[in-house]
Simulated assay, not measured.
Amino acid sequence: MEKISVFLDDYRKAPDGYVLAETMDECISLLYSFDIEHLSLDHDLLHKTRNGFMLVQLMIKEKLFAKRITIHSANSVGGKAMYNLLKQAQRDLILSDSTIVSLRPLPLHFFPANVMKHYLEVI
């Protein structure tokens, strides 16, 4: 299966080397179709109820994961909820401990170089 990295966001552009998914449904399709190296998730999407939190719930239910998952949402409450749900899945042995889960909020209008370094790291 082909390996890709996915950036879920309906507002920001994807970093170089990432496939942009603008909706939860696009992201789900990619999770089913590809081996995901790095999945970077936003919480707030155009469709208010089909957001990043709902995606994480579905990922856990269907056991659809990436090797590395980053929550980049600027929504601090929603982003922390997504992060906590993934960490709970690790404690419950649903998500492997080898999966790196990180919370790294990105600003909406500007990507500082040191923040983008996280997207260039190969783990």
Rank of each mutant, 00 (worst) to 15 (best):
Q57W: 11
H47T: 13
L55K: 00
H38E: 06
E37D: 11
D42R: 10
S5Q: 09
S29Y: 12
T49W: 05
K13G: 10
T49F: 07
Y11M: 11
D9K: 11
L41G: 11
H47P: 06
S5H: 01
M59F: 04
D25R: 10
K13Q: 15
L31I: 03
K48G: 08
G52K: 00
K63R: 14
E62V: 07
K13I: 10
I60Q: 08
H38D: 02
M54W: 12
L30N: 13
S29F: 12
I28Y: 14
Y11P: 04
F34W: 07
A14R: 02
L20G: 09
S40C: 11
V56P: 04
S5E: 01
E62L: 01
K48D: 11
A21R: 05
L45C: 08
F7M: 03
L45S: 05
F34I: 08
D44W: 11
V6F: 01
K13S: 14
P15K: 06
V56F: 09
F65W: 06
T49K: 14
A66P: 10
A14S: 08
L39R: 00
T49I: 13
D35G: 07
H47M: 12
H38Q: 00
F34Q: 07
T23C: 04
V19F: 14
S40G: 01
H43Y: 11
E37F: 07
E26I: 06
K48H: 11
E37N: 14
Y18A: 00
F65Q: 00
C27V: 08
Y18V: 07
S5P: 04
K61I: 02
T49C: 03
V6H: 09
L46P: 11
N51S: 03
L55N: 02
E37K: 15
G17R: 04
M59H: 04
N51D: 15
E26R: 02
E62H: 12
Y18E: 08
I60R: 08
L8M: 00
Y11V: 15
D16E: 15
D42T: 10
L58V: 07
A21L: 03
N51V: 04
R12D: 02
A14F: 06
D9Q: 01
F65T: 08
D16K: 13
G17P: 05
D16F: 10
K13F: 11
M24F: 02
K3V: 11
